[in-house]
Amino acid sequence: MNELCSLAVYGAGDDRSFALGDYEGPLPRWCPGCGDHSVLAAVQRLLVAEQLAPERTVFVSGIGCSSRLPHYVRTYGFHGIHGRALPVATGIKLHRPDLSVFVVMGDGDCTSIGAGHWLHATRYNMDMVALLLDNNIYGLTKNQTSPTTPQGYPSNTQPRGSYLPALNPLEATLGMTNASFVAQTAEWIPAHLFATLQAAHRHRGFSFVRVLQRCPKYTAPLFEEGMRKPDVIELLVHDDGVTVPALAGVYKHSIHHDPLDLDGARRLAEEGDRIRLGVFFRDESRSRYEDIRRLRSFTAEEKIDLLEGELERHAV
């Protein structure tokens, strides 16, 4: 194996236990009421629930309001460049499968400038959690249309309304070869958000979660209905997906959907009257890129022997 999960790292994995305070970073600087706050809270709760060692957890992001998230979590963080969080995460995971990797992207980040990487990362299916914080707009750069902006919704770049139908990230991911986990949740339903993050984390493979995220600054009307009217929400429930019994009282609509059913998932992912939340698809048997054959690390002495042997093949 070539990665650097030296024994020293495992030795450090003593019997510590971690509380919320161990994961809290500086105070976030998002707008008041921004959905990113809820995502941060859920992420920190997940870290506690799963007792992930802070030094062996990495949050990788691109650029955008949402991509600020790593700064506020006290783990390792990589706040890179716009649209390119996934290649960085791929590199980290290829070298260090021992690390838990979370990727945080905005809708512009993931579905526009980084769309190519998104499709390929889905296919690589490396064990990481990818969160698409979808506020249907470019937040950081102040209100430009994103691929997921609903048709007709105005912005600074398309003031008379977005010209085209919105890109549906669930359909796109479900359409990609070797997808293994596709879910949708809404940050204003914390119990569902948490349960979805947990399912995503526990899934072995590339867990893609689209989080519907309020942006009170630019897209408040788009999320109004979903927030105020539980009736427009429909939960996908299954033992193998996400089930939050406590929510049943509030959200009357639910469908029993087996996440192994890809055709069903694709049908449910289509745009409809209701906002569907839950695990659309999950199949742990899909090939994972990190499972490609690896050799164990060689010691320096062994490597030198190998190199000498190799030089011999070129000897004059």
Binding site: V60, P87, V88, T90, G91, I92
Partner: peptide, 8 residues
């Protein structure tokens, strides 16, 4: 990006 992530 992959090389940078790995190097990091």
């Amino acid at each position: 990006g992959v090389a940078i992530g790995a190097s990091y």
